[in-house]
Design a protein around this nucleic acid. Structure first.
Lengths: 225, 225, 225, 225
DNA sequence: GATGAATGAGTATTCATTCAT
DNA sequence: GATGAATGAATACTCATTCAT
């Protein structure tokens, strides 16, 4: 978890855990109420500090919100980002393992809160959106691309564009994650356990990328770069 | 399009087009600012009525928001909901046609606005979420289930659980739609045209539900329609 | 008294006397507390309106302050600005009459409040300072210049630079006026009635501009232009 | 310069130059922002101490303000207050010399800052106003009275009430000084140099107090000193 | 019906003051 | 003594809601 002052030198030195307390409280309250709905009073109360103290560490409500997103996402990244390419196993095994990690993280209440906030309010903070894109989505997709490409080369997968494959599995994961935390569509998943959902997605995915019947070996084509 | 007073008898008769003007304006402003960020002044101004007039037709801001969602969704339903079972063609053809309709609707700016609002704020309005579930998601899924079941029975598709298949294609559609309107992940789709995205999803889907190797061949038609 | 909306079209139509009520209350509170010390709650209470109503007519506290100054000064101008040149009488008589008008106005509590505010806070509002200079000080001085010049030409006064004469009598008036409302120096004037003060100033002034002993007629010199 | 603790025993011993540092910083900040506009943070920062340290030497912001005024004024007094009665020269010469000293001091930026603060905010601090009256104004006027009385007795001046003469020249000086530092009326003085202004005031003054025509001639010396 | 002036509760933000270290 | 983190009362400003016209 990256500490606060590494991002913005204008915030004062943290005299212990104050910024973390505040961010934790902010996470809860923003998660419940959204950006506009959250009251600084509530955040302060939940953090066990006074309202003024928040302003000692964050210049305003928006900065607090953005830092909360940033830090949660960073924490998430650090928890999931490992080098899967150095690992042993078939490409399929690696993809499955990587997606399982992602799935586990995505089941986290914290992740779901961030996800809802990201979808609902990120478009108002372009730099934050850019950060999210660069550090979260792009990195995830790039790793997936590498794994898929290896699988294509080894003949485990058919000759699918890795970017398309990454997007497809990403889309299924993202939607299932949002649905899981959205009351509106939760009933759709009610009868299916988390583990089943994961297996269903992976099974669906592997079938879609399974090698064509006739060709075990795939020719490297131009678009695979 | 369902008229306003059918939902709530306490709203007065519509004496021309007042409620529609207001809802249209509300749609724009809520879409830009979200529920909490939208100001009734702005909605009134954009609707060309006075702020007080809004209260002649809607008891408060939340009701206006809910009615806007409801009506947009209803309009959307009416535009897409047709009986695909009576149609001719293979199950795959019918699925593809149905999904194309859905895709076209989902590309609509209006739909994307609703989608963002739904994800961000629907959890605060349980009855609305219930309505959304019943009238949008469930109906869509049930139709898909029927089409899938027919395809399975006819041997066009492998023996997949129709609910799972519906969920998978739904998840891909939903995520691609959200992404298209979310600045955070928009770059991921930038290089791919709408038509390509649709084809990629459908191709991916049909491969995943294709009958097993040993079973009878399914005629794949030129997938560029 | 110039009405409010003639200055700034962005303020809404005044639906009777609302802006005046507010300005009158603002005048009192600002006069007692100064710009920073005045609370909008107090102004609203004293005006008999709610706090929000103030914002219906004035975009913020500063604008209210500035408008109050502007309007008081304008009112003052309209009360004093007459054409003294068309009047009959010697230049000395006209000067005396004009200064008496000024004196009377300057004794007004309102004027003293404005004066203190002007000296204390005007330097933060350059446009307002410019307005004050153009509309109040410059106009007064220019009229004085004309009167003095006539007196010099007619031989009633010695060949004094009208600008200097205007500045001198202005300085005495200004200081006496500030002193009268300043607790710090009020004791200095305590023993002297208003009428006496006026007579003393005028007597002092006329002696200082009295023609030189030897010359009844004054030669027009270059600097009198 | 009167040291701090002679005024208020509750302030602790000065352990070097701390209080002076603070007062100097306070002078600058109060001068720029006024009483209410000045922030203790800024004063502390400019003094190079922590905010808490200010409270070691001054019980609160107002006391700091008052002490600053007091000390500036005292310093001013000590710089100008000399015994002019023991000096040689005519009364007119002594008046001129005394006024020149005053004028020089009044041109000081520091004095102008104090002047603005005094006019704008002194009315809220009656004891400070009393102090100002006793120590600044009264002492100045009394010395002027003595000089004037001597001049009247010697026939240099006409038989004018010394208090009135003192008030008149004081009023001209005060106003010119305020004007010089007030953006609102600064243009009025722009074309006239400091030295010219002084000469104009003194010339105007000496003419107004010159002995009547019939009385004995007063030697007017080259008024350009 | 329609208006828009009026309301006042609600909230972000500031800053003088305190006090544990 | 000195610090500066913490406090929370104070206050400008907003905006959903009401209601007299």
């Amino acid at each position: 978890m990256v500490s606060v002052e590494s991002h913005c030198p204008k915030w004062r030195r943290l005299p212990e855990e104050r910024p973390q307390q505040i961010l934790v409280a902010a996470f809860e309250v923003f998660g419940e109420k959204g950006l506009a709905g959250a009251r600084l009073d509530d955040i302060a109360k939940r953090a066990g500090v006074s309202k003024g103290t928040i302003y000692l560490y964050f210049p305003n409500k928006e900065a607090l919100f953005k830092e909360m997103i940033r830090q949660t996402v960073v924490a998430h990244l650090e928890r999931t980002e490992r080098d899967y390419e150095g690992k042993r196993g078939t490409a399929a095994e690696q993809v499955r393992e990587y997606m399982r990690d992602w799935w586990n993280v995505a089941r986290t209440p914290a992740y779901q809160v961030v996800l809802r906030l990201v979808i609902g309010e990120l478009h108002r903070f372009p730099e934050l959106a850019e950060f999210y894109w660069q550090e979260v989505i792009l990195r995830k997709q790039q790793l997936l691309h590498r794994l898929m490409r290896r699988g294509v080369e080894s003949g485990e997968f058919r000759d699918i564009d890795p970017a398309v494959a990454g997007r497809m599995i990403g889309s299924m994961f993202a939607a299932h994650t949002v649905w899981a935390c959205s009351s509106a569509v939760a009933p759709m998943l009610a009868a299916t356990s988390d583990a089943e959902q994961f297996d269903q997605i992976m099974d669906f995915f592997f079938r879609a990328v399974a090698p064509d019947r006739s060709a075990r070996r795939v020719r490297h084509r131009a678009r695979c770069q």
